[in-house]
C-alpha cells in the first residue's frame, strides 16, 4: 500500500493554480469587458449591458463569419479524415515496414511546419503568375489561375493547406491504429472471400470506431485554429469570403476600429459555444 506522502499536493498544487489563473482570469475578464464599450483609443468605457451581444445578432458580417467558420469546420474535418483513412489503409496494405518508416517521417513534415510557413509556401505555389501549382493551368490555357482571389475557390484552397497538414499526419495515426489490430479477424474475413475493401469497410474500420471518433474530435478542436492560415493567405478576403470568427474578431478588435468590447463579445460567444459543444461530445465519446 502507498504510504501517506505530500508528493501529490506538492506536485499538483502550483501547476494547477497557475493554469487556473491563466485560464480563468482572461475568461472572466473577457466577459467583463464584453458588457462595456471599451475601445483601444478610449481605455475606460462604461457599462452597456447586453448591447454588444444584441448588436452582434444584427451584424451581417458576424452572421457571415459564423457561416464561414462552420463551413471551414465541416470541410477540414471531413476531408482530413477521408484523406487520413484512405492513405492509412494504403500504407497498411501496400507498404513494407521500411517504406512505412520513411513515409511516416515524410508525412509528419507538413504538420510540424509553422502554420505561417505552410501558408506562405502554398500561397506562393498558388501564385497566379509564378506559382508552381498553377503553372500547368497557365501553360495549357494561357490564362493565369487565381484561386485565392475568387470568392468561390478561396476558402477551399486554404482548406486544402489545412488538410495537407493534418490529413497526412492522421494517415500515420490510422496506420499505427491498424497495426495494433489483431490479425485473426482479417484472416477470417479473407477466408470468407471478402474483397480487400470489404475487409476494411466491414472489419477493420468498425473495430477502430472509437479511436477514429477521437481523431475527428481532435481535428474539430484544431480546426478552430484556422487563423494563421487565413491571415497569411487571404486576410479574410476576397471581401469577406474567408472571414472566420477569429479573423473577424481580430479585425474588429485591432485593425478596423479597435472595438475591444465588441470583439470580446464575439470571443465570449465562441468560448461558450466551443466549450459546451466539446464538453458534451467528449463526455459522450468517453465511456
Amino acid at each position: 500500500m502507498k504510504s501517506r506522502t505530500s508528493l501529490p499536493a506538492v506536485f499538483l498544487a502550483p501547476p494547477l493554480a497557475i493554469l487556473a489563473v491563466l485560464a480563468f482570469v482572461p475568461t472572466a475578464y473577457a466577459i467583463y469587458i464584453s458588457f462595456r464599450d471599451r475601445e483601444l483609443s478610449r481605455p475606460d468605457g462604461s457599462f452597456v449591458g447586453l448591447q454588444n451581444y444584441l448588436d452582434l445578432f444584427s451584424d451581417r458580417r458576424f452572421i457571415n463569419a459564423v457561416g464561414v467558420s462552420l463551413t471551414w469546420e465541416v470541410l477540414t474535418v471531413t476531408l482530413t479524415l477521408l484523406v487520413a483513412i484512405a492513405l492509412g489503409i494504403l500504407l497498411f496494405e501496400f507498404a513494407s515496414s521500411r517504406m512505412r518508416g520513411v513515409m511516416t517521417l515524410l508525412f509528419l513534415v507538413p504538420v510540424i511546419l509553422p502554420r505561417v510557413s505552410a501558408a506562405f509556401v502554398w500561397k506562393f505555389a498558388f501564385h497566379p503568375l509564378y506559382g508552381i501549382v498553377t503553372y500547368p493551368y497557365k501553360a495549357i490555357t494561357g490564362q493565369p489561375l487565381d484561386l485565392l482571389s475568387s470568392p468561390a475557390t478561396a476558402l477551399m484552397t486554404v482548406a486544402l493547406v489545412d488538410v495537407w497538414q493534418w490529413g497526412l499526419f492522421f494517415a500515420v495515426i490510422v496506420l499505427k491504429l491498424l497495426e495494433t489490430l489483431p490479425p485473426q479477424p482479417f484472416e477470417a474475413a479473407r477466408l470468407d472471400h471478402a474483397r480487400p475493401w470489404e475487409v476494411y469497410a466491414y472489419v477493420a474500420l468498425p473495430m477502430l470506431k472509437a479511436p477514429l471518433i477521437s481523431l475527428a474530435f481532435i481535428k474539430m478542436i484544431e480546426s478552430l485554429r484556422a487563423f494563421d492560415l487565413i491571415y497569411v493567405m487571404t486576410r479574410g478576403g476576397p471581401g469577406i469570403a474567408t472571414e472566420t470568427l477569429d479573423m473577424y474578431a481580430f479585425s474588429q478588435g485591432f485593425i478596423e476600429s479597435g472595438r475591444i468590447s465588441y470583439a470580446s463579445g464575439m470571443a465570449v460567444l465562441m468560448m461558450l459555444a466551443t466549450t459546451v459543444i466539446f464538453t458534451v461530445i467528449w463526455k459522450r465519446v468517453k465511456p
Binding site: 493554469l19 485560464a23 482570469v25 482572461p26 475568461t27 475578464y29 473577457a30 469587458i33 471599451r38 478542436i221 478552430l224 485554429r225 487563423f227 470568427l245 477569429d246 474578431a249 481580430f250 478588435g253 475591444i260 470583439a263 470580446s264 470571443a267 465570449v268 465562441m270 468560448m271 466551443t274 466549450t275 466539446f278 464538453t279
Partner: peptide, 17 residues
C-alpha cells in the same frame, strides 16, 4: 478543456490585461 478555448478568446482579454 483548455485546448477548447479559441486562441482569439484568450488573446483579446489578455491583451487588455
Amino acid at each position: 478543456s483548455l485546448r477548447f478555448l479559441p486562441p482569439v478568446a484568450v488573446a483579446i482579454p489578455l491583451m487588455v490585461i
